[in-house]
Design a protein around this nucleic acid. Sequence first.
DNA 1: CTTACCGCCTGTCGGC
DNA 2: TGCCGACAGGCGGTAA
Length: 270
Amino acid sequence: MPELPEVETTVRALKPKIEKSLIKTFELRNKNLRWPVSSNLAKILISKRVTSLSRRAKYLIVNLDSEYLLIHLGMSGSLRYLSNNISPQKHDHWDLCFENGMLLRYTDPRRFGSIHYTKDFKNHFLIKSLGPEPLSDAFDENYLYKISRGREVPIKTLIMNSRIVVGIGNIYACEALFDSSIKPTKKAKRITKNDSKALVAAIKKVLEKAIKAGGTTLRDYLNPDNSPGYFKVELQVYGRGKEDCLKCGRILKEIRMNNRSTVFCPNCQR
DNA sequence: CTTACCGCCTGTCGGC
DNA sequence: TGCCGACAGGCGGTAA
């Protein structure tokens, strides 16, 4: 399950491999991803050069000299940089093949991921409404405090809203709220300035920690070179419902919010 | 405008 | 042992 740290790790790993590479072909085996993959893509991409690779939210941005590919890994997607003599498997939906005999292979069993081509990624429908990056200076305690005023939704729902701040999935929302001692169900409009300060700091902390750990949030994620990351991030609450709180020892509670599993400590988080 | 809910998918897991 | 339903959940679209 690629969260922002996995996407960031993927970008860092692929950057030196594919930047400056010349595209030879794009081979599409299954166009039925989250959004149907454009059938024009193969034609468009022939002989284009990758000028840079970056990330916006959980999208990988492949810059082709002012044209762009937007790639999302969805729930189960991954990218690997491989030699072109390795046969694709069942869930390998497309290959971006380079002149040097290597390729970028997209694998995604659940097909929640996507790939789009655009000349103007900033105004692309998937990008234009996104809020600030959580690790940027724009995402600070004042921003979160102000934008949470008057909001009836739970604070957990708010920080998972990509119009408010991008890249915070269910796992890191639970972890950051635990770290900042805020109950997930607390109404956004009720968070204090101190809450906002603690939560922003916690979000940056857990994301940065996971990136430093090599982006390995969950069991089956592999980096583009097939390495499993350096070590797993120890999750404090996610997936630990009914287990002991690592701060106070009491029993962690698991509830559902917006149909998502939500774990917190009723004692530590208020 | 905000909020709540739907649907897309398949591998994994627990229960019988 | 094998079947089957529940679950996992990012996120845009839609309706209220």
